[in-house]
Simulated assay, not measured.
Amino acid sequence: MASAVTQAGDRENEDVALVPFARSHLEGALKLSQEMSWPYLLRDWEFALQLGRGFVVIRAGAVVGTALWWPYGDTHASAGMIIVSKAVQGRGYGARLMDALLAAARPRIVTLNSTVEGMALYQRRDFVPIGVIHQHHGIPRERHEAPGPCFVRAMAPSDIGAIVGLDHEATGWTRREMLNRLIEVGDGYVLLRDGIPRGYAISRLFGRGHVVGPVVAESPSDARALIEAALAPLGSVFVRVDTSATSQLGEWLEGIGLQQVSDATTMVLGTQMPSTGPARTFALANQSFG
């Protein structure tokens, strides 16, 4: 009997492979996220893979696990879209994916947003919690008016340098490529003070509708103005905003019809860089990109 069990285990191990995430794995990754009731569409997976890199676990020819990461220069990275099929959880595939991801990403400081189920996996790899993200979504109750163009206006190509600077000020990250691509596929807005950009927001198609984020500003009132500008052209469509529990936006988002539906724990491996200026992050591009 022991010999039969060993042979079965050997066959299973031979039929399992951890390989770099390629375009050919996108359909399998989509099925995994659908199994978890995550809102990603195929275009969201494609966009994430264009900007990042990662690994998949293949078992019997099917994708049963995924993990992606996005480099922000040589010092920082974010990680996400870490999924293991329910049918094969508990077999160490999540550990294999994370160990491969960290071997590729380190010595960068790595940030991720964890579900309750994933926390133990990350804590065993010395990730520590540093905050909580609240996911708000829904259809806004009423049409929103954009602030005046002297205060918030559409983003122009000439703004990219200021946007990258504000983003670095708020996050400590250098992610010009990521921001360029988010702006290319979305609609950007800048908040002006004395004619100088002091905040920005990007709205784009994502999941069931639109996501508003990143939103970087110097105060909750400035962040609300940027979100109002992003909501104004959308009308009655599904909108998602992922914001920190300390952002002071939660009650306002609830009031306009974007209910809090879940939360995630922000975790970091390495020393988290403090904000270097008054600008800070009020909403994420999504929980994977940060």
Rank of each mutant, 00 (worst) to 15 (best):
L41T: 13
V63I: 09
G80Q: 07
A29Q: 02
S37F: 10
H76I: 06
V63F: 07
T66R: 00
L49C: 00
G61W: 02
T66S: 03
V56R: 02
H76Y: 05
Q34W: 13
R53S: 08
Y72A: 05
I82A: 14
A77V: 07
K31M: 15
H76Q: 09
A77L: 04
L49H: 00
E46M: 15
S37W: 15
A79G: 15
A29R: 04
V63T: 03
T75I: 15
L41F: 15
W70D: 04
A22I: 13
S33Q: 13
R53W: 11
T75C: 08
S33P: 10
D44T: 06
M36N: 12
R23M: 13
R43E: 09
S37Y: 11
S33D: 12
Q34D: 06
G80D: 08
L68Q: 11
F21M: 06
G28W: 03
F21L: 03
Y72G: 05
L68E: 01
L42Q: 07
F55M: 10
A60F: 06
S33C: 10
E35N: 03
S78F: 02
T75A: 15
A67C: 13
I82Q: 02
W38A: 09
L51A: 07
A29G: 01
A48Q: 09
A29L: 00
F21I: 00
T66F: 01
R53A: 15
G80P: 05
